[in-house]
């Protein structure tokens, strides 16, 4: 039985292709998390700010992204942008765009939570000690905000990695799509190919996400006090 597993992975370039698929998966996750951070921080500061209409607008955006399945958004942007408005974007670009659209909103909410949870007296005390505005931000507020933010950001990263298989639906050759192609080709010769390949992909996701989630929990516990 195990022989057939080895044969499936050794056949042709199967293993190399799976790793290429993993590369696509990781590329989407890493780029989308990076962009989400870049857009999410200013969004979060605006959500925590005092401009009411802007806050409502951002609140609406956050709620919409939270309620709509990411898969539906992926699908809508992939098929309507290309067909309806004649904009041709690659599946990769659409994936990163949609993941960022979702991630920036979630990141914004994390930043808002981190900033608003800091008590007002942190600013006042720092100023009373005679720190300059720059020192207040960089030595008092930002270090504390990052502590509150980081576990959530790491958590969002694993959620993003676990959402990447959705790109399967717009035919992007991610880990799962490559796996399916391999199963289709070698399934006739090796009936157990689907067990091995999908089992392998299952383990890969676990091996990537489990340490990250352990790290997030470790930070949470360490910084809780």
């Amino acid at each position: 039985m195990l022989d057939s597993a080895l044969s499936v992975f050794r056949m042709g370039r199967n293993m190399a292709r799976l790793m290429e698929g993993l590369g696509v998966t990781l590329e989407i996750s890493v780029v989308a998390v990076g962009l989400s951070l870049i857009f999410g921080v200013p969004l979060g500061l605006m959500m925590a700010g005092s401009n009411r209409p802007l806050k409502w607008l951002l609140r609406g955006y956050l709620e919409f992204v939270r309620v709509m399945p990411i898969l539906a958004l992926l699908f809508i942007f992939y098929y309507s942008l290309s067909k309806f408005w004649n904009i041709n974007l690659s599946a990769l670009t659409v994936s990163i765009f949609v993941f960022t659209l979702w991630g920036a909103a979630e990141m914004g909410d994390l930043v808002r939570g981190a900033v608003t949870s800091l008590p007002r007296h942190q600013w006042d005390s720092a100023r009373a000690l005679g720190l300059s505005e720059g020192q207040v931000s960089f030595r008092v507020i930002i270090p504390q905000a990052i502590r509150r933010l980081l576990p959530g950001v790491i958590n969002l990263t694993t959620r993003m990695i676990k959402t990447t298989p959705f790109v399967f639906f717009i035919n992007l050759p991610d880990l799962l799509k490559v796996g399916q192609q391999i199963v289709e080709v070698s399934g006739l010769r090796y009936p157990l190919a689907s067990v091995w390949v999908y089992g392998f992909i299952f383990i890969i996701y676990f091996v990537i996400c489990y340490p990250i989630s352990l790290f997030s929990r470790y930070l949470e516990r360490r910084w809780a006090s």
Binding site: P165, L176, V195, Y198, G199, I201, F202, Y205, F206
Partner: peptide, 23 residues
């Protein structure tokens, strides 16, 4: 809990729907 939380539903479904019938 760790196994289910750290893997995507789609991969779980592929294993359940396409893998397990072979067993």
């Amino acid at each position: 809990i760790e196994l289910a939380r750290n893997t995507p539903l789609m991969v779980q479904l592929f294993f359940l729907y396409f893998g397990l019938p072979r067993l």
